[in-house]
């Protein structure tokens, strides 16, 4: 019989009524059994009434849907720790912090030049952490300044992208996934820093990957301030 069934509630309350009737009937029982019968009758009646109330509340609120839930305080975690993130390029990132990044899709992005990836020193020191990403959409003449600023940022990966007139958000849509495969990039909390000329492109790009790109902003400092910290792989429940 289910813990939340009407029949269990009815049975409990029926038993309470029966016990009440029997207790009243035997209240004047003669001999030495009178006190124990009264006490036992009252006690069982109390227990059944409280159990009935508890069952009604439980049925209404669905606290414990099954006997198993009630009996076992199951804290056995079903959560798992996600695999430690790795980037395909991790072992090759041994030289300076900025590298030219040339995945196979580079030509499809119609960029002025291959993207530049700026890796913070902490990236190598904390090899089990995933880093948030700031994607900078800028012009060729400002790319060097963007790189200099990115190199001073401690806890983010920066990818500097110089679009052309033929660059589209749809074309760039695979870039985040490719970057996340090549480097230990966090799954969310990315930001796009766009020069005014590329704000529309940035917003379109964000709309194609809203779970990954959280913000579009005009300044690197704003993006850096809103970035989540580098974290180890989280504990996860099934989705």
């Amino acid at each position: 019989m289910s813990l939340t069934s009407r029949s269990l509630i009815a049975l409990t309350l029926l038993l309470a009524a029966v016990v009440a009737v029997v207790t009243v009937r035997w209240w004047r029982l003669r001999g030495r059994w009178r006190p124990p019968v009264r006490a036992a009758g009252l006690l069982v009646f109390e227990i059944l009434v409280l159990a009935g109330i508890g069952l009604i509340v439980n049925r209404t609120e669905n606290f414990y849907p099954s006997w198993q839930d009630l009996v076992e305080d199951d804290t056995t975690t079903v959560a798992t720790t996600a695999p430690t993130p790795t980037g395909r390029l991790d072992t090759r990132l041994t030289t300076g912090p900025a590298v030219s990044w040339t995945p196979p899709e580079t030509a499809q992005w119609h960029l002025h030049s291959p993207p530049t990836v700026v890796v913070p020193a902490a990236y190598r020191r904390y090899a089990d952490r995933a880093f948030p990403v700031i994607a900078v959409l800028t012009t060729a003449d400002r790319a060097a300044a963007a790189r200099t600023r990115a190199e001073s940022a401690a806890d983010v990966l920066t990818v500097i992208v110089v679009p052309t007139r033929t660059t589209t958000a749809a074309g760039l849509s695979v870039l985040p996934g490719r970057l996340a495969a090549d480097l230990r990039a966090a799954g969310t909390g990315w930001a796009v820093v766009a020069d005014p000329a590329y704000t529309t492109l940035a917003r379109q790009w964000q709309s194609l990957a809203p779970t990954r790109f959280r913000t579009v902003t005009g300044t690197f400092d704003d993006a850096l301030a809103a970035a989540p910290p580098p974290l180890r792989a989280p504990v996860r429940l099934p989705s």
């Binding site: 199951d74 974290l231 989280p234």
Partner: peptide
């Protein structure tokens, strides 16, 4: 069900998820 044993299992993943979505 709707009990503390469920929330005990959920809270660490939820805190981790929140931290990944908040600025550091």
């Amino acid at each position: 069900g709707h009990t503390s044993s469920v929330w005990k299992q959920m809270e660490a993943p939820a805190f981790d998820w929140l931290s990944a979505h908040l600025a550091g």
